[in-house]
């Protein structure tokens, strides 16, 4: 299926002053494939994706690692060169489409802007393209609605507008940061269907979510992040079938699904760690049911397991075996 890497992030480290928000994260997005990044808020998943876009907040800085898009190192590009890639090659949609859209400009203007400013289209031609783009994402009466403002749409319609805008110039990679979190369930399904249509047309995606159901329906592979690090990676099928990290195991038990309904939802004990005072050794050990003395002192590296997946747990094999017996 895959025909080479589109995006490669290696050992990425992002710091807010002295705080390390992302601590050595590596990930690969194959052409036309979708990678999910899963984790609690504060795990560094959004910061990782903003670093890829070159849109980190002013206080944050990439302090290590590399990001390459189709072999081009994004971190070595001049700001203006990176800017030109945004919209054209890389695009992003956000959790709350109401605040992500400009309240004082019509949605038609905001979409048409892509064609006018980025492609030099005339105002009339750009408006026409914008209406087409709105119709394509399923907005009824697109020509009439193009003159409306963001607040005049429902949440689902606004997210469709965001998608139309992000995909206007046919980028190759779309980063979707919690694209359905703010929407109700039926609308959520419609938005996911829309994204899947685009995937089939060859769009590669990074989908950031804490909703394992959304991940299962959109992504081929998954990275689980905890406290700024990847703790597990693999294909969605493998990871869902049998997590190889206690944190993933906890996430699965804590989210409602057919799998957990029989056993009930169990939240993970404790809270995500304070980034300024991370536990020694494995950052997850204070909350981990598998933790031993070794976890307190020795940081587990993300290591390959026989099946080609990876886990950052000293006792990954034991976790795998545990889950097989518990799930049976």
């Amino acid at each position: 299926m895959s025909d080479g890497a589109l995006l490669e992030v290696s050992e990425l480290a992002v710091a807010f002053g002295d705080l390390r928000a992302v601590r050595g994260v590596s990930l690969t997005v194959e052409k036309g494939q979708t990678l999910a990044i899963v984790g609690e808020s504060g795990s560094g998943k959004s910061i990782t994706s903003l670093a890829v876009m070159g849109l980190l907040p002013a206080q944050a800085k990439v302090v290590g690692g590399g990001i390459t898009l189709d072999g081009v190192s994004l971190l070595d590009l001049a700001p203006d060169e990176l800017r030109r890639l945004r919209g054209e090659e890389l695009a992003m949609i956000f959790q709350d489409p109401l605040s992500a859209l400009n309240p004082s400009l019509t949605v038609g203007y905001q979409i048409a802007e892509m064609f006018r400013r980025r492609r030099g289209a005339s105002r009339a031609a750009a408006n026409e393209r914008a209406v087409e783009a709105m119709a394509e994402v399923g907005i009824p009466d697109a020509a009439g609605r193009a003159r409306s403002y963001p607040h005049e749409f429902s949440g689902g319609m606004r997210q469709r507008i965001m998608i139309a805008m992000a995909l206007a110039l046919e980028p190759r990679l779309l980063i979707a940061d919690e694209p359905t979190t703010a929407l109700d369930v039926t609308v959520q399904a419609q938005i996911l269907r829309l994204l899947r249509e685009r995937q089939r047309a060859g769009l590669a995606m990074i989908i950031i979510s804490h909703d394992l159901g959304v991940v299962a329906r959109t992504a081929q592979s998954v990275i689980v992040m905890y406290a700024g690090q990847a703790v597990e990676s693999g294909t969605v099928a493998e990871v869902y079938d049998a997590p190889a990290h206690p944190y993933t195991l906890g996430l699965m038990a804590a989210s409602p699904s057919a799998r957990t309904s029989r056993r009930g939802i169990r939240p993970i004990d404790g809270n995500p760690p304070d980034q300024a005072a991370l536990p020694t050794g494995c950052a997850f050990h204070p909350r981990c049911p598998f933790a031993r003395e070794r976890c307190r002192t020795e940081t587990p590296p993300l290591r390959r397991l026989p099946s080609g997946r990876a886990s950052a747990c000293h006792f990954a094999e034991e976790v795998l075996a545990h889950d097989r017996t518990a799930g049976a």
Binding site: M53, L55, R83, G87, E88, R117, R118
Partner: peptide
């Protein structure tokens, strides 16, 4: 505000 980040994500120049 978030819409500023969106505008940047669209690849618009800082001037725009």
């Amino acid at each position: 505000r978030d819409y500023v980040r969106t505008a940047r994500a669209k690849g618009l120049s800082e001037r725009v």
